[in-house]
């Protein structure tokens, strides 16, 4: 039998969200059979954190969850030492979630010292800045299938093409907008006034960042069934380096004109198209999808 690849899952400044997300991976058994976890805070592991902190072992894949603060200690050893030791031996370094990728939420508590593993927002910074080993699985949290995909590709010895922010292209070339069930409402500019409705797009009134966010949430569904925008909550753009922004339930507008428009489309083109689409009233789209009183 082929020796199992050794995985070490280390945590920096984190809420454990990515660990919890990964526990929902439907093929967790496959992962446990294929990889040996040297350490994970919840999954069966070969060593304790104390043993890991001695830095005498080596791993093939370092998974790091949480923002990177070099001064933070795990059982008396600094993250700088831990990440330096295990990262230098590993073939792959995977940043699990937006904090590990770009600094994310926790970076805001100490913006001077805290970063991601290889990026400070979108600027290369940190112990794995520009390293070809680095794979960012941004998201708050990352989708469990995204980690599953990455680990399977590594196990099968297949190359993982990444974008300029080191995110796997296969997962992050899409926008969260792609596959959203509200696309027709977006096209005709029919917006929802509330969260949780079946009808309406969330772009103009609820702060939806779907058209500006690289993520496959509406292609690879959460728990295989749904996504935020499908249930009527706006996409917060949690896979992008500028996450978290402020007032995330609001669409930033200037004189009623959205400040940000879909990726790669000029504002002039977008406003022309949107203005014309908005001029028409499509009664079907303005009605309830399922109207029990009708």
């Amino acid at each position: 039998m082929k020796p199992r690849l050794k995985v070490l899952w280390l945590q920096g400044v984190t809420c454990n969200g990515n660990t919890h997300s990964f526990l929902n991976y439907p093929h967790l058994l496959y992962v446990l059979e294929t990889f040996e976890f040297l350490y994970h805070s919840l999954l069966p592991s070969t060593y304790t954190l104390e043993e890991i902190s001695t830095c005498v072992h080596e791993c093939d894949i370092l998974i790091f969850e949480g923002a990177y603060d070099p001064r933070m200690e795990r059982v008396g050893t600094s993250l700088e030492t831990l990440v330096g030791h295990y990262g230098s031996h590993a073939k792959y370094v995977i940043a699990a979630g937006s904090c590990a990728s770009f600094g994310g939420m926790f970076k805001h508590s100490d913006p001077e010292h805290i970063t991601g593993l290889g990026f400070d927002e979108k600027e290369p910074k940190g112990p794995f800045a520009s390293s070809p080993k680095l794979i960012n699985l941004s998201g708050c949290p990352m989708h469990p299938e995204w980690m599953g995909y990455t680990l399977r590709m590594i196990a099968d010895n297949k190359p993982i093409a990444v974008d300029e922010l080191h995110r796997p292209k296969e997962l992050y070339s899409y926008l969260a907008h792609h596959g959203c069930t509200r696309n027709e409402y977006f096209e005709w500019k029919v917006d929802s006034d509330h969260f949780g409705t079946k009808e309406g797009c969330l772009f103009y009134k609820q702060g939806c960042r779907g058209p500006m966010t690289h993520a496959s949430c509406n292609k690879i569904l959460w728990n295989d069934v749904s996504s935020k925008t499908r249930v009527g909550t706006p996409c917060f753009g949690c896979t992008e380096p500028d996450f978290p922004r402020i007032n995330m339930f609001e669409t930033k507008t200037n004189m009623s004109i959205p400040q940000d428009v879909p990726v790669g489309i000029s504002k002039r083109s977008y406003l022309t198209m949107a203005g014309i689409a908005k001029s028409f009233h499509i009664p079907r789209l303005e009605k309830r999808l399922i109207d029990d009183d009708a």
Binding site: M255, K267, R268, L271, T272, G275, I276, K278, S279, F280
Partner: peptide, 15 residues
Amino acid sequence: TGMVCVSGFVTELML
């Protein structure tokens, strides 16, 4: 209706 015939001008004003 709406912006259909005036969009060239109104879009520039929006910008």
